[in-house]
Design a protein around this nucleic acid. Structure first.
Lengths: 191, 191, 191, 191
DNA sequence: GATGAATGAGCGTTCATTCAT
DNA sequence: CATGAATGAACGCTCATTCAT
């Protein structure tokens, strides 16, 4: 097994198990077994459990951000950008359910709190899509006067919860419903 | 100590500890000590840890429902009922932060999934406030044509997320902001 | 098995194993197995490994001091007191070889350094036999002008090393040799 | 890097690390890193950890013996030879504290027992300074009638213990005190 | 010969659960 | 009934040793 394969196996095993069993139901030895490597091997790639968990999240977040930035309608009206992001998040997570479940576990844990201020796609050194929308929206007075945090919650909380329901099989989130959902979110923040 | 007292002490101790120390930072022996009973005694009242945790949640849920039903404006317009519930949830959890904490921990654990269908205040054998709003709203065509699940998410997900941010100290959710928030939620579901 | 028996079994098992295999050759599970108890049981009696190791030493030290104080010739000439202690140490450790080996392991470990200033039988809150001899000897000018530490080493180091050789079977330390040895030590510190 | 260099680097790295971090705080990978070689390489020169540790000790011992033999007053009176050795040991270890540390660690470990019979400078195939003193002293009846082991202990145990106290900072062993100490040791074995 | 990635037995410790009292 | 001492599987992690390159 090549070195890169090994690392990927570990990441995949960890993601799958954590998504399925939760953070506290997933032990290092379970990850090792599922990845087909020795326990000690994990520690060659990740300093410790915490590091592994954070590295997994970072990797997933970066992929999501990259996906959202593809075809991002830079400079187009705020509403269009908002709908692009909302639809993109839904699209991405429906196609990457493991990422979604992992992300949920991550945000609902001590790791999540320390990460919360940055939100899903804010990174200190990169232009930040979310801020782009919020700030342009505020400047153009097309969105309500709300703290960014609350704006963020109105924009994404229903999407996240609905994705969860979709992935658990409680509802079917097809293209039509997806569009309705994102537009509803927009209606909650637009003036 | 009477039998019912013992049970209540155990529930109160468990609730407090889990809200403060987290789900996995709370051991059975900590609960026993705080409740002033022997470890073995807990197992007379609850089959095992899982059972205790679920019983705790059930109790929380019942209290919240009872609170929301106080002064519920039965028969008044759907919008008024919606705003009553939204404001009530915020009010309740700001005044009972341990309950919020416990509830969050519960929902983000393997216990959460099995409970999700019932949602915050849906209980099979009781008249259900949420259904009242959804069904009357749909019948009167004042709310959008969305599955109840999605309606629920639009209505409450931003509130829950914002409560979390408030309790973590990221924002201050005062009366004015609370009102804005609930009205925004309404705007996302109203026609 | 009675509670006190269990604690004693653990102590005896730990002492024996550490004396035989050394500190780092003795694991908690080895101790548990030899003591005939579960691993977790050790932690009911001792907070952790360090505590166990220090508690063992404390107990042994107290027994030695008690033994040396039996028949201690209080107020008799310094030389007589010195010979009493020297002979007593030899006597005690020949009859309690486990204690000797454990003590050796203890003093040659990080635990030992923190304990060194107090020396074998100095305890802050008790009248201290060693200081009695050193101070009276210095006041009466029957012992040489040496720092107490060096005095201590001259007095006891040869005894300890010779005990070790005896217990390892390299020599036979009988009453006659014991007397010669202690007198030689005295000759190295007397004026 | 030449083969002999590699071996020396490994020995030096191991020595330094063990003296500084302790016997059990030094891993093979730390040694490899400090020596600038691969982990596997160590196993080309030393069968395993035990072998390495014993080889280290052998080297230390040889250096000390070589130092003590420089200027050894062959043929001079026993007392003079004794004082020369005592002062030499102190001198050497004060100037090579890592060696002292390593030696102490070695003697207080399972390795120590198997090595004890040979003592600090007894080697089966070399003329042995210690035996020179003991045998001439006995023949000339200037030292007491004691087994060589006990003679050795009286002669060196106080010195070793006092060196330890000096290196730990408990006392300051200057030239004057060093002289007093060695003379005291002599007084314990002379007739 | 030299390397270091890979291994897994073993470490100290925890804690849900049992059961003799 | 109530208790809490006892248990041991399981945890995250380390590190001496091996072996394919």
């Amino acid at each position: 097994m090549a070195k890169e394969d090994k690392r990927n196996n570990i990441i995949l095993a960890a993601m799958t198990l954590i998504a399925e069993q939760g953070f506290y139901g997933t032990s290092m030895s379970m990850i090792a077994e599922k990845a087909g490597v020795g326990i000690g091997t994990i520690y060659r790639y990740f300093e410790n459990r915490d590091t592994l968990i954070r590295a997994l999240y970072k990797e997933k977040e970066e992929r999501l951000v990259a996906f959202l930035l593809e075809n991002y309608p830079h400079g187009r009206p705020v509403r269009e950008c908002f709908l692009h992001i909302g639809a993109g998040v839904i699209d991405y997570f429906i196609r990457n359910p493991l990422d979604f479940n992992y992300s949920e576990q991550f945000h609902n844990s001590p790791y999540g709190v320390e990460h919360r201020r940055n939100r899903i796609f804010a990174a200190a050194d990169k232009p930040d899509i979310f801020s782009d929308i919020y700030e342009r929206g505020a400047a153009q007075q097309v969105i309500r006067d709300l703290p960014p945090t609350v704006f963020f919650n109105l924009a994404f909380a229903p999407i996240v919860w609905t994705l969860r329901d979709h992935l658990l099989g409680f509802i079917h989130l097809d293209a039509a419903l997806s569009q309705k959902l994102v537009e509803s979110c927009w209606d909650s923040v637009k003036i």
